[in-house]
Write a protein that binds this DNA or RNA. Structure first.
Lengths: 250, 250
DNA sequence: CGAACTTTTGATATCACTCAAGGGACGTGG
DNA sequence: CCACGTCCCTTGAGTGATATCAAAAGTTCG
């Protein structure tokens, strides 16, 4: 399922990038984060990192690829409740509770790091700025969840997808994983369906409509957004919930 | 809009009840919480406690009634993203971010307490057990949000409503605001619609169906669940996400 | 080259929305 | 204590959005 691998590419460190969007880090902070994220391993698609019902043990840092939080219902239906992108740390808060009420699962091939609980505790105590950034990051995750709820509750299928694509553009740009108009989206239409609370067939048709309207291109796992501002208007996307660029209050 | 009122009834203090569900409190902790929650004021229905776009200032503690977190879309649509019940503290985490991305609004008449930021900071520093319980409480709120997402994404209208009613039963029981089978639900069908991402007409018809199946009664703001286990089965409700009764890990 | 996925298409069924109007309940003022 | 307004709940009819089922076409990868 996984093996230790040296970090491969020369992409910017996504964790550092992300946290610097929330607060100012010292050289020591940065060095620490770089050190942590050195020992990565590859995990194949559709593999549980943390399983529902288990007691969380340590946290996972996503370095490459996409993972998610998901739940299953009795008749095999599933709902994805969050995407975990490069730079996202998961399981930190979950550790405070006894039992996972959902699973954390890879969607694509992922390069991840597991950080032991003790290491994590030490970091939080000795690097207050990192702790602060992680705290803020958690709040943004929660705000994102709320926006997803609006998405499912009050938008049509095409708007829903468009909104998700807008969000991913912003989030991936923030960690240097997207150009101005394009990014890798290694998801299946069924994955999108389980994210948006719709059927895979309807995802297919909605994607076609977005393509026809010239809002997106989506081929071979690469999503391209012709004019992001147009897609944002279509989806009524306001990035404020991601709290990028507003250095948070003390 | 509001005025200071002495605490009226002899109901148990909901904040104490709630936090004791998450951790063990000392007498000093309890005394502190009681002291804080003494100076309540009444707020009329449909009043913003915190407005979208504003900078959060202080936290609000709900002592009686129901409030919510909500967002509005352009064409007047709204989506309720969380219910705030007696014992719920809101705005604590929000304060770490610069700007509210949603509003906190009363649904019914509420008895609330506003706690100043300085007071809150002091409490968190001098009462670690309270801080810990509040932290866990926040995580449960997030888990609740995730479950709501499953609800909107993967359940039919009747199941959705049933699931909400099950959740409220558990949460209200935990703060002594519900009997084994019944509680006050001072909401309009339009409120329910904006919670469930459906139209008010469809809420009406779905409620009728739940009534016909003998699963609920709902009259004059009072909801009664004949046999909770039946309703839970119908909604596929598992209370684990509320993390009641599992004393969380250290 | 073939097996296993994934995407696409068509046809049909169903769930939920919109619009519009009637019926209650409740509070207020005369 | 009645009249009236205002919400809120309820009903009906028609429409629209999305799901389901089934099968064909395209991809990917060993």
């Amino acid at each position: 399922m996984s093996q230790v691998e040296p970090s491969a590419t020369s992409l910017p460190n996504p964790l550092v990038r992300k946290l610097e969007g929330f607060t100012t880090l010292s050289d020591a902070d940065r060095a620490l984060l770089e050190r942590i994220s050195a020992e990565t391993r590859l995990v194949s698609p559709r593999t549980d990192l943390v399983r529902q019902g288990a007691k969380p043990d340590g946290v996972f840092l996503i370095m490459e690829g996409m993972a998610c939080r998901q739940k299953h219902r009795a008749k095999g239906q599933r709902q994805i409740m969050a995407y975990l992108l490069p730079g996202d740390l998961c399981g930190l808060d979950d550790a405070l509770l006894n039992k996972m009420d959902h699973s954390i699962t890879t969607l694509s091939i992922c390069r991840v790091v597991r950080v032991a609980p003790e290491t994590m505790t030490e970091i939080l105590q000795q690097h207050p700025q990192v702790a602060r950034a992680l705290r803020i990051s958690g709040l943004v995750d929660e705000a994102t969840l709320r926006e997803w709820l609006v998405n499912l509750g009050r938008r049509y299928a095409t708007e829903r997808l468009a909104h998700l694509f807008c969000e991913l553009l912003v989030r991936l740009q923030a960690v240097g994983r997207a150009t101005e108009i394009s990014y890798a989206l290694p998801l299946t239409q069924a994955d999108l369906a389980d994210t948006m609370g719709m059927s895979d067939v309807h995802v297919n048709r909605s994607l076609q409509e977005l393509r026809q309207q010239g809002l997106i291109e989506f081929r071979r796992g690469q999503l391209t957004i012709g004019r992001p501002s147009r897609l944002q208007a279509f989806a009524e996307f306001k990035a404020d919930y991601l709290h990028r660029g507003d250095q948070a209050a003390t």
